[in-house]
Every structure is written in C-alpha cells, then in structure tokens.
C-alpha cells in the first residue's frame, strides 16, 4: 500500500486552478523528487499531503487516512508527517532544544526529559548538538535548516516532506543540508521533496515528478527522467536548470 496517494486532486484559488487533476503516489521507503518552474503548483501539491492547503476535488490518502475527510484529526495525522520549509520556520522565541521539544511534549505527550533526550540524540545526528541552547536567530541558514529537519524527525514520522529546503540558503550552505537529506534517504525514510537540486535527485531519488501549470506532466523513474524525458516542457526545464 502506498504511504502517500493522490487521487485526481484539483484545487482552485477563486477561479484560478492551481492543481489540475493530479494523481501520483509515494511508496513506503521511496524518495520522490518534485520539480518544475516556479508557480507550477509543486509547493501546493506537497502541502496537500498534511492538509496545510485544502483542496476542492479528489482525495489524498496518507498512511491509510484520507486527508480531506471531515472525520480525520489533522493534528494527529500531521504529527506523523515531518515537514521542512523553505524558510526553516523555526520558532524564534524558543531555543533549539525547545523547538524540538514543543510538539513532542504538547502533541505526543512525552515528558520533558524524554523529549530532551530524543532531541539531543537528533541534534547529535545532524551535527548541531553544540548549538542546543542557542536561538534560531543566532544560527546560519544551513544550521537552522538542519535543526528544522531534526524537529521533523523528533516526532518519529512515517514520512518526511521537504518544500524547497535549500532554495533560501547561501550556496556554501546547501551541501550541509543536502548531506543530512541524503543520509536520511539512504536509511530508507519515505520522502517527498520539492527541490531543484538535480544532483540530489540523481543520487537518491527513486522517482521524479515534473509539474507545470498545476499539472503533473511527467512522473517517471529517475533513470527515465534524466535519460529521455518524454515531454518537451520537461526537457526545456531540465536544460535550463542544468546549465545554471
């Protein structure tokens, strides 16, 4: 059974259609990269997975639960899906440990000691343990993003969503974040990543989805996508970003 499944999802902002009949799925342990030009709907698509963006038609099934269902308790569903944002979105008034502890304590009901132990283990893993007492504003972008990944992992998620995790970073910081993501992928984490980092896609992705104007134009295994993309739009897009 697929971990994440989109069935004919459509979404409108007023009369403007941002998602057009999108269907795809992410299997357990699979790494799927979503790419496409800006405004193509890829961030919107990934935010449908945990219900941050409501949609009007179709269905999204995550871990056997329908996201759009009235009966679905979204906070519980979201707690099982880690998410990493373009602008990190750490909570500026809490130190790094408190950022990781918050949802563990308030949502999962862990004790503070238990949560802190978990947080420190994860900070160790992303190489941020010596910054555990610092505030987000005192860290570089790359460091903040590694903390944000640890915050997602602290919930023991069944899948991780990445929404352009490196596009707000200075070039010299991109790799420290990608390294953490690669490691995660190699450990078998289910991942759905909106990113333009084609090096990352080549290295760890199983499948690549290409979106344009709200449509899933291409949805292919990595080898096929980088070998012979079938659509002209994907070819154009690839040649543009690979030459940058």
């Amino acid at each position: 059974m697929a971990m994440i499944e989109f069935r004919n999802v459509s979404k409108w902002y007023g009369s403007f259609q941002v998602l057009k009949d999108c269907s795809t799925s992410v299997e357990k342990g699979e790494v799927v990269v979503v790419c496409g030009p800006s405004g193509s709907g890829k961030s919107t698509l990934i935010k449908c997975v945990n219900g941050l963006e409501p949609f009007q038609q179709g269905e999204v099934i995550v871990n056997g639960q329908s996201v759009g269902d009235r009966g679905t308790r979204l906070p519980q569903l979201r707690a099982k899906i880690g998410m990493v944002f373009q602008h990190f979105e750490l909570f500026p008034h809490m130190d790094v440990t408190a950022n990781l502890n918050l949802a563990q304590v308030k949502v999962l009901g862990r004790s503070v000691e238990e949560a802190t132990a978990k947080s420190h283990a994860l900070l160790q893993r992303v190489g941020m343990i010596e910054h555990a007492k610092k505030f987000p504003g005192q860290l570089s972008g790359g460091q903040q993003q590694r903390v944000a990944i640890a915050r997602g992992l602290a919930m023991d998620p069944v899948a991780m969503l990445f929404d352009e995790p490196t596009s707000a970073l200075d070039p010299e910081m991109i790799n420290e974040v990608l390294d953490v993501m690669v490691e995660l992928a190699q450990e078998g984490m289910t991942m759905m990543c909106v990113t333009h980092e084609m090096g990352f896609a080549r290295k760890v992705a199983h499948r690549v989805i290409f979106m344009d104007q709200g449509e899933i134009v291409e949805d292919a295994p990595k080898e096929d996508f980088f070998g012979t993309p079938r659509s002209e739009r994907a070819q154009q897009f690839l040649s543009k970003i690979l030459h940058h």
Partner: peptide, 27 residues
Amino acid sequence: IPRGQVHAGLAIGLTLPQTYRHVLLPM
C-alpha cells in the same frame, strides 16, 4: 508574523489554538 510560522506549528501536529498559544502569541 510570517504565514510559514502557522504552517510550521500545524505541520508538527499542534492544533490551531496550540499554534496561537505557543507560536504566534509569544512572538
């Protein structure tokens, strides 16, 4: 406060009232 902060609060599983209480209001 940037909208992303609400999204981040919700994404880690907080309810909307919890997001106000722990994320939006303190800032």
